[in-house]
């Protein structure tokens, strides 16, 4: 029977974080894709999505910056771009929405694209997906379960999605469409993927709660307390691991886990790993192949005790 699944070959927009603090996510995403027979083609000459900082100065400039990346996707002949970072994913989605609903955004994008000398992106041409959509749709739970070589059985996981993967709802029109689609109130794609790899997901009440990531420098103490609360809640739910799918969240959780111990004297033992790292190890990849050594926290001994990596 022909394989009818989508997203086997997509354009890849790693974004700035995956070249720096989130490099382990970049490495593990590529490794998992290769292992699963999926093809990622990185965008040529991509630019920063504008993250949150540009939006704070001028949201129309942020829309343009993301529209340029969508324009490159189109020029490279793709109809889908995959962004593993929640910030990039959110901004591409927001640009798509704004260009479809706001005449001023269209006008600014037209003017700046012309000035920069590249094609103007028009809404409706490109579909933006997250790494979770990519693996869930291109491979699916059944195939993941079939390919698992090193089950995550016995690993209790709190899946942490962060605040930008589902918000605001109106820029994600494909979500909340019933069975099989992602939920904006109780996201579950990461839960589904890791369960297929053998993990035991715990019921975690803070899976979309704010980690304080954006205020990690301007208000570090609040960020530390927010992260500590997330980690202690995960431990109270019985989790050994917090699985992440956003480099900003991941870095924030790791950094503030250390800071909570240093500043507040509160030690938490829960490990923080990208879902792609967990999935990769379940597929038989080594811990170094999925970049565990690049994480701030050292989870190698823990993973070894679970027979992983």
């Amino acid at each position: 029977m022909a394989d009818t699944k989508k997203y086997k070959k997509v354009a890849y927009y790693p974004g700035c974080a995956l070249e720096g603090s989130g490099h382990a996510y970049n490495r593990s995403t590529k490794a998992v894709g290769k292992e699963l027979g999926l093809e990622l083609v990185e965008l040529d000459n991509w630019n920063c999505c504008g993250a949150m900082e540009v939006k704070n100065i001028d949201p129309k400039i942020q829309t343009y910056l993301s529209a340029r990346n969508l324009s490159i996707t189109e020029e490279m002949g793709f109809d889908t771009v995959m962004a593993p970072c929640n910030g990039c994913y959110h901004n591409l989605k927001k640009a798509e929405y704004d260009l479809g609903h706001d005449a001023k955004s269209v006008e600014v994008n037209h003017r700046l694209s012309e000035k920069a000398g590249h094609g103007e992106y028009k809404a409706g041409k490109i579909e933006t997906i997250h790494a979770l959509d990519w693996i869930k749709e291109a491979v699916g739970e059944e195939e993941i379960a079939r390919r698992v070589k090193n089950s995550l059985k016995g690993l209790k996981v709190a899946n942490y999605y962060g605040c930008m993967y589902t918000r605001p709802r109106h820029i994600f029109p494909e979500k909340d469409k019933g069975p099989g689609t992602e939920s904006t109130s109780k996201p579950h794609f990461m839960d589904d993927i890791l369960a297929a790899a053998g993990a035991q997901n715990v019921d975690f009440p803070l899976k979309t709660a704010c980690c304080g990531g954006a205020h990690t420098l301007s208000d570090s103490d609040t960020s530390t307390k927010l992260v500590l609360n997330i980690l202690t809640a995960a431990e109270a739910c019985g989790a050994d691991v917090v699985a992440t799918e956003c480099p900003t969240c991941h870095t924030g959780l790791e950094m503030h886990q250390i800071r909570a111990e240093k500043v507040l004297g509160r030690k938490t033992n829960v490990k923080i790993l990208y879902f792609t790292q967990l999935l990769g190890m379940a597929l038989g990849l080594s811990s170094s192949k999925v970049g565990v050594q690049e994480n701030f926290s050292d989870s190698k001994a823990f993973l070894k005790s679970k027979g992983l990596g």
Binding site: M52, E53, K55, N56, I57, D58, P59, H90, C163, M164, R167, P168, A209, C210, G212, A214, H215, S218, D219, T222, K225, L226, N229
Partner: peptide, 23 residues
């Protein structure tokens, strides 16, 4: 913590999912 933090930094603008411009 979330709302307490927002009350403290509200004047700076929000660097988060639905930020409003500082300007």
């Amino acid at each position: 913590l979330f709302i307490g933090g927002k009350l403290q930094v509200d004047g700076l603008g929000d660097f988060c999912c639905s930020s409003r411009p500082i300007r």
